[in-house]
Design a protein around this nucleic acid. Sequence first.
RNA 1: CGGGGUGUAGCGCAGGCUGGUAGCGCGCGUCGUUCGGGACGACGAGGUCGCAGGUUCGAAUCCUGUCACCCCGACCA
Length: 538
Amino acid sequence: MEEKSRGELGSTAGGTGKWRYTARLSPAPSMAKAPQNAISPTREENFPEWYQQVVRASDLAENSEVRGCMVIKPWGYGLWELIQRQLDEWFKATGHKNAYFPLLIPVSYLEKEATHVEGFATECAVVTHHRLELKDGKMVPAGELTEPYVIRPTSETIIGAAFARWVQSYRDLPLLINQWANVMRWEMRPRLFLRTAEFLWQEGHTAHETAEEAMEETTRMHEVYERFLTDHLAVPVIAGEKTEAERFPGALNTFTVEAMVQDRKAIQAGTSHFLGQNFSKAAGIEFEGRESRREFAWTTSWGVSTRLIGTLLMAHSDDDGLVLPPRVAPTQVVILPVTPKPEHEGPVLEACERLAAELGQQRLHGDPVRVEIDRRDLGGGVKNWEWIKKGVPLRLEIGPRDLESGSVALARRDRGPKEKQFLPLAEVVSGIEATLQEIQDGLLARALAFREEHTVEIASMDEFRKFFTPAKADKPEIHGGFALVHWAGSAEDEEALQQELKVTVRCIPKDPALRGGPGTCVLTGKPAEGRVVFAKSY
RNA sequence: CGGGGUGUAGCGCAGGCUGGUAGCGCGCGUCGUUCGGGACGACGAGGUCGCAGGUUCGAAUCCUGUCACCCCGACCA
């Protein structure tokens, strides 16, 4: 509906819902009743554009002057800090320690693991000089390095080199290290949070005495990610293993958590790799074993990135902007003072302070509730919409009438923008934890229902093609979803399907209910052990 | 890297074919009127029209080059 998207341009509907710039749209009485939303275009109209508009409207981040790189603004960084804090706590709880390794990696390090180089070579930024000189008014690189460095696209090689020094004996194992860092991958098509040239992430790297222990570690961290996405980001995921075609370069097994976002595509939200002895052989991570034999360590690596923010956004947000699950909302409750007349200001603000203090005493999962009072001298409506667009879970308003009645107006981000309840103050305070948790659970339930609605079991290639072929080739609408199919195809077969339909095997699900029993491969007709998840993906 | 598109005030855009030194809406500032709501009025600030060359008396407008961004594709957390 074109009118709807135009609606934002004027955005000056009066209290009666009249549109001001009717000249352009010609008289259309029905327009007066068109629902207003803060983001244009809507998800339905143009999903990729909607995504960018939400990033902007919510003040999470902006494109920078550096190609493919973003400026993460305080609201976005606050979100990242909360993600970091929880994961970091769990990494520590599972025995890991943080460390930091160099940003620059000698090219020769990369060459050590053949598959690994192949995987990353095309997206490396290379540092070749160490000095600038002024020539004709321009600074030009001088002092060429004898060996170029790459800016880390990931740190397996340089951490491997350190591990080789640190590990002498089986007594030095397991070695459990995590690094919070930025990495750079020269992507061809950057998109804020989803695929930027520079991004923030966490990379765990561990070395173990036996394959079994390393595999246990891989699984353990895979489960940490699954739990984090589910319980904190309220994003349901399908946990499973990647097929050979989708594996991390150099890994023996790659495990993934795959989420479905609102355009029904899949997004890989976290990965955990069992690296076998590939990297320890390449880097020389050897130790003296219990039987006095030299052995190569078994290593793992695992990571999540700022892509989690993009995932979260696409999973929950609506046509009014971002919707944040309370557990990762930098501000969980915003208090908006309503001061119709200047003389209201004193008492109202005072009441807001008291309320903020009381709410700050309440806890959600052990953390004090994060409350903010928005004292800015701005129109109430404007202020309100700003917080809606930023996705704050709860908005509380206190005005003169509330002072008299001891009430508070409460509006939830998971309900309509105009819906609000007037509740007794004490009830709001004592019920805050339950309300926040209810929103958290509601978002998860809604996302799960959405995924289930768009997940189908498919038993024939006809159906399969139909499911993944948009009705209009020129303007592909939102369609498809997750297809559960029996699969026994090869990497070549996957490649062919990717060419034809732009779909890939997202994972071999570990959940027995999704995996199912033996069957017949939808493509080759060969016996298949179970089902896999096919989808288009980010 | 291939195909398409766009770069004009913070944001969204008009103007460009038919060259004469910039305009609209929102936002922003001040004042006033409003006020449980994305208000209204008055006045006002803000742009070397992505950048660099060229053609011309004169370029946002024509030509060449270049950069950036967006969409589609190949690649990827």
